[in-house]
Structure formats: structure tokens, C-alpha cells
């Protein structure tokens, strides 16, 4: 009788100890993981694959394109290749012709290419557009607001946004024709 009670008390204590220790260890482990993960997250990648692409509106300055402003939300249902570039960025010059080459074909399929220029001066952008004969919309972000919104680091940076408005893929650096084609296929609406 007495032994039974003692045994019961013992197992209850043991259980309590386990709960208490596991609880504290769990809280500590959570704090530890949170601390490490959040400090390892680079500020430059605030928007990652799977996030909703934040909306924006910018003035479109390419004379080869009829749009006056570009608003991201208006392209819902279409795939969007959102490219950040500048005239002084060398790798941008490398990938621009590929984008232009594929643009008409994918425009038909429902994918829009939007190339946000981060240049300060209009003139150099116009000269660049003429030189490379670009026809897709070129919104201009001289204040750097949208590049800050998307936390764009090195140029070029490209966000492939699927028809649901989610970021499908983020690419830093220049794209080759094959890569570009593959990524555009990923965001082509069915």
C-alpha cells in the first residue's frame, strides 16, 4: 500500500521533471534557432521564392512601348519577368539581347518582361534602348524606391513571378539564353 503510493509519487515526479525540462529545453532551442536564422538572413533577400511579389507603379520611359506607367498588379494572370538593370552594368548588356529575342514569343504566351532601369539619367537609358532595340516596357526608378522595396543587391537581378503573383525564382547575375527560356517557361500561364 505504502510502497504503491511511493511508487506513484515517484513516477508523477519523474513525469513532471520530464515535462519541465523538455519545456525549458524547447523554449531555449526555439530562441536559439530563431536567433541564428534571423541573423543569417541577408537583408538583400527579403523577398524569396514563394513570397507574393509586392506591387508597385512606375513611369514607363521607353519610346518603343506604348505604356505610360507600369503597375505590377495589372499583370495578374500573366507571368512576369521583373528585371532590374542599369546602363552601367556590364552583365546587363549581356542578357538584354536574349530578353529582347524571346520577348515577342513569350508576350504571345502571356509572359510580360518588365525591365526596371535604376539609372539616374533618362538620356543614357534612351540611348541604351535605341542601341539594343528593346521593345518591352522600361519603367524608370531613379529614386531607388522599388529597388529598395525588392532589396535588389548586385545587378542584374531578376524576379520571375508566376501568374498567381508569387515569386517563382530569384536570379542574381546575368542569364544565358537557355536558362532564360527555361525560367520563362516556368511562369508561362497554362
Amino acid at each position: 500500500m505504502k510502497i504503491d503510493r511511493a511508487k506513484q509519487r515517484k513516477s508523477r515526479k519523474k513525469r513532471n521533471r520530464l515535462i519541465y525540462r523538455s519545456g525549458i529545453l524547447a523554449v531555449l532551442a526555439a530562441a536559439l534557432i530563431f536567433g541564428i536564422v534571423s541573423s543569417l538572413q541577408n537583408d538583400n533577400t527579403v523577398y524569396r521564392e514563394g513570397d507574393d511579389a509586392p506591387d508597385f507603379q512606375l513611369e514607363q520611359i521607353s519610346q518603343n512601348n506604348d505604356l505610360e506607367t507600369v503597375r505590377l498588379n495589372e499583370y495578374e494572370g500573366n507571368g512576369i519577368m521583373l528585371n532590374f538593370w542599369a546602363t552601367w552594368c556590364d552583365p546587363c548588356k549581356y542578357e538584354m539581347p536574349f530578353m529582347q529575342e524571346l520577348y515577342p514569343e513569350y508576350k504571345e504566351k502571356g509572359v510580360e518582361i518588365i525591365a526596371v532601369s535604376l539609372d539616374k539619367t533618362d538620356l543614357v537609358v534612351h540611348q541604351f534602348i535605341d542601341q539594343y532595340e528593346l521593345t518591352f516596357p522600361i519603367p524608370h526608378d531613379p529614386k531607388g524606391e522599388i529597388s529598395d522595396l525588392y532589396k535588389v543587391g548586385p545587378l542584374p537581378s531578376t524576379f520571375f513571378i508566376n501568374p498567381d503573383g508569387e515569386i517563382e525564382r530569384v536570379v542574381e547575375g546575368a542569364l544565358t539564353l537557355e536558362l532564360l527560356e527555361g525560367f520563362l517557361d516556368e511562369i508561362t500561364p497554362n
Binding site: A86, T87, W88, D90, L118, D119, K120, T121, L123, V124, Q127
Partner: peptide, 23 residues
């Protein structure tokens, strides 16, 4: 007529003029 403007001029390796930065 300003045919080309290079805000931060340099010569690339293949000898074409380009701008290194925005400024």
C-alpha cells in the same frame, strides 16, 4: 547632339567606352 553620355567613363577591355557607375 549628345550621341553618347558616359557619366563615369572608362574603357572596357575590348576598347569600347562605357560607364562604370551611375554617377
Amino acid at each position: 547632339v549628345i550621341e553618347h553620355y558616359f557619366p563615369d567613363y572608362y574603357l572596357t577591355e575590348d576598347g569600347t567606352p562605357a560607364s562604370e557607375t551611375n554617377y
